[in-house]
Design a protein around this nucleic acid. Structure first.
Lengths: 203, 203, 203, 203
DNA sequence: AATGAATGAGCATTCATTCAT
DNA sequence: CATGAATGAATGCTCATTCAT
């Protein structure tokens, strides 16, 4: 692992993190393809070429942004899944955890939403596919358990439900702004209330 | 002197429509920026330059794709809104209409989802902003009316609810494939059931 | 010579002349390179492709415009040179004839001024070089005869004088507009007065 | 936070000047439109894309060439006009100055002659129009003063005289080659002699 | 660590030209 | 005679990337 041709790993990881945060912000705002390395460099106060001291390529930047985010996401998810909660409580915990990740990695989440699909085609981003599958297994499994134990309705197409819940949560990254009116936990609470009980008033 | 009349430059609208459908498919699959004019031309079985006989620019293609879609969408929405239904029935009709549009304009909807935000910055695409505002007014207004007449819950942040319902419906375009297992109406029915009554089993 | 592959020669020479006049106008206004065949076609009330029924190529248009003009110019010049006038009278006649040509072929003259130099490099336009040489011989010869017979000053560099007189006359095409305040003959008279006697008041 | 300062984007002005000189040479030889960016790059020993490190566009090259030339021209002209010379001496000084500029900026002058008219239509090149007007005012005014004080003939159309003198001088750029037989001052002397006193021998 | 300058492949677009109808 | 549609080569320009300093 320390056999890189370039001194990519040694220099201060703090600067690296700063630069990645900057890049993520620009990627999220303009899209990965539409963002030029020069714009990232401008935002970081350096020249385009200088970025290549820190990173192999533009691709390696988004790679590191996404893999870091997914790493932290799965840390949280795995903890929830390991806790052995009931289906409904698991869903609640996963949704809450998701909104917390959106809060902490807004840019990365937005990038993920927009770019994951076409990046996943490249071998380098195989981990996106893996994560996607693990994700589906976790949510779908929980929903199925919930149907089995009568926490969730049985009259719905389960895959449709899965997509509904999944999308419902993650699209929020497209409009969420940290430091807004609601805390991630409050948003999670209201989302869960809607998803679980519906927006209609019981009559 | 019957000469000197400018010759027709607007050729057969059928070919145009074909080409736009092709372009929309490619844009939806790869993203607008990531799509080269050459790829569209390849998909249409012609050379890149030949597209310019039919269209002014790549931009005018996405413009026509989006404006055509929005035109038809609003035809449907306006009919629903003019029908004077109760809030809940209005929401149901709007959601159903939306899934029908997704069914008929899948590519355009996917493009809209991905590109509308940054296109809207250009004056040429002002109509995207207008449509967005009209859209918000229609949905938010209906939700508010529904809260007022006790069709919908009053304990939720109304803007959050709006975003929830809006996203919930339209993200479906990202995975929807026409001719799949469920008809648009069936998907609408299940989505509505989830959105209105929740996925939890009443206890 | 009548062995052309295309029916370029048979169709009505009037239409041809009209089209050439139109083309010359556009070439003169915008420059040859900057003019698209579509612009010529627009001005002629037809589609770009249709021009190719009448002409082999854009190049053949400017070719015919210039060769027609030079043909008529030399008709006039040759008549003057054949008249056996004294040097000063020859110059006067040549200048007057030149302004008449500018009057009748303004567009062609303007095109000639702008494009002759670089067109002359192509074999097809060899006649431009020939004409140029014949032109120089006529004017320079007349000036030399005039110096010899004491009509013209002997203290000037003769080639400089030649260029001076030549340019002086032909650049007028860049601002001349037929139907203006002065007739070509009047302009010729004043130009000759300046060239021959100077603009300074004799003291 | 001393970062976030925009890095210098205006590189060494010497290289810039070299490249502009190269570009001017090619523009003058082939015309602006007919010159490709690749040709300029070839002449400069680099690739087409590399030019864009130094210049925004092909247009900005001709812009800088022309504005630099006009700047220096007006430095010279303004000095002459500020000297308060008599009309005839002013004309002599202006003509001499003009030939000096032709000597120093031959390429730029040739480009100006060929391209000024159509460039002037664009807002970016408004300064060409301004310069043209200032130019006319200076020359025409001097000629008028000269007519008034009996330095110049009163029997000529003054605008015709203006155009005659103006064109007479500047077209010289089309054949002038620096380092030729005559110095700019000598050419100016002979031109002035012709313009002021005519080429005919007084009888 | 960062700069300045360049590379080279690729892109949207233009345009003269062709040709079946 | 003219149109409609297409070709294919070229053009101005962009951008990720490299590398000597």
């Amino acid at each position: 692992m320390p056999t890189k041709k370039k001194p990519q790993v040694t220099p201060s990881p703090e600067r690296r993190r700063e630069l990645l945060a900057t890049a993520a912000e620009v990627f999220a705002a303009q899209g990965y393809n539409a963002t030029t390395v020069r714009e990232i460099a401008d935002a970081a106060g350096m020249l385009a070429g200088s970025l290549y001291y820190h990173f192999d390529s533009k691709e390696s930047m988004i790679d590191e942004i996404l893999s870091t985010f997914l790493g932290e996401l799965w840390e949280g998810y795995d903890a929830v899944l390991a806790a052995g909660l009931a289906p409904r409580q698991t869903i609640e915990a996963l949704v809450t955890e998701s909104f917390r990740e959106i809060d902490r990695h807004r840019a990365a989440v937005a990038i993920y939403q927009k770019e994951a699909r076409h990046l996943a085609a490249q071998p380098r981003f195989q981990y996106l596919v893996d994560s996607q599958q693990k994700f589906e297994k976790a949510w779908l499994g929980t929903l199925e358990r919930g149907v089995a134990d009568h926490s969730f309705r049985a009259d719905l197409d389960i895959r449709l439900t899965y997509r509904f819940v999944r999308d419902t949560v993650w699209v929020a990254a497209s409009w969420y702004r940290p430091g807004g009116q609601h805390s991630p936990e409050e948003i999670a609470r209201q989302y869960l209330s809607m998803v679980l009980d519906g927006i209609a008033l019981d009559t």
